[in-house]
């Protein structure tokens, strides 16, 4: 679990060294996540109504749709936060494929800590801790000693433009700065897939753009995968693919680079 932290590509000095986000990346690679026939009902509401979706390694996918269309439910199901009523979510790892919907709560919790990173609208930072401690916490929870966790966390914060603010508490940061701390925390563990639910939803548009730049560069810019729920069409347009949901179904899939719309389920 910790081995990912010491992988050379994680050294934050090199975070943006291959931040070639302008080059359209070729996603010939295998899917890192594949969801099949996801169904989830809350009472009589169908939050997910037969969703099939593949997320390829290194791509950025935006999930859009009206309020209540099931975006968050889909994100939570892909990330192993919630279990669907039926269907499967296969996660590719070095050990082969694994259906995460069959795992128990503690195994999924471990997966979320170690393999995934999260950036939510409300940051979810711990107010008593300093910025660097919030980031280091993610490593310490995975078993890294504090003395090793703090320098890594510091490097991440500087790489995301927060040098000099490491010792501030969350209440002493602006909304955009706090969101960068959350982005650092999501990735310091070496997570390969980052899930974001309206990460810029609480920010003004200028700050939102800055935070989005940081998020894109530090994730897909480094070859990792980003799945992001957003209401903002401009934000979505920065992604490789846009999935639109309505009433728990995928209604369309577009690639902002090209004008053609692909029918759902017809990818690759």
């Amino acid at each position: 679990m910790i081995e990912a932290n010491s992988a050379p590509e994680q050294a934050p000095g090199t975070i943006f060294s291959h931040a070639a986000s302008n080059n359209p990346t070729q996603h010939s690679s295998a899917p890192v996540l594949s969801a099949r026939a996801l169904r989830r009902a809350y009472g009589s509401t169908l939050a997910l109504d037969g969703v099939d979706l593949e997320i390829l390694t290194g791509e950025s996918v935006a999930i859009m749709g009206p309020s209540g269309s099931g975006k968050s439910t889909l994100l939570h199901t892909l990330a192993g936060i919630e279990k669907p009523d039926s269907g499967s979510v296969l996660l590719a790892s070095s050990a082969g494929q694994q259906d995460i919907t069959t795992l128990g709560e503690s195994a999924r919790s471990k997966l979320r800590r170690e393999a995934f990173g999260f950036v939510f609208q409300s940051g979810l930072l711990i107010p008593e801790l300093t910025a660097v401690e919030n980031v280091a916490m993610a490593l310490m929870i995975n078993g890294l000693p504090r003395a090793a966790a703090l320098p890594q966390a510091n490097q991440w914060l500087s790489a995301l433009g927060l040098a000099g603010m490491e010792e501030r508490r969350i209440g002493q940061l602006s909304g955009g700065q706090a969101q960068r701390v959350a982005i650092a925390r999501a990735q310091v563990t070496g997570a390969k897939v980052i899930f974001a639910d309206e990460p810029t939803g609480a920010l003004d548009s200028a700050t939102g753009t800055e935070v989005l730049n940081v998020l894109m560069e530090s994730t897909v810019g480094r070859g990792n995968t980003l799945v992001m729920v957003t209401h903002d069409a401009d934000v979505a347009a920065r992604c490789d693919r846009i999935i639109s949901l309505r009433d728990g179904k995928i209604t369309s899939e577009t690639r902002p680079g090209s004008p053609n719309t692909i029918a759902p389920g017809a990818q690759h």
């Binding site: 503690s106 919790s109 800590r113 170690e114 939510f120 979810l124 711990i126 107010p127 993610a138």
Partner: peptide
């Protein structure tokens, strides 16, 4: 916050 941290995998 507590519910959210649980989502992040903080037990």
């Amino acid at each position: 916050l507590y519910a959210g941290l649980n989502m992040l995998g903080v037990q």
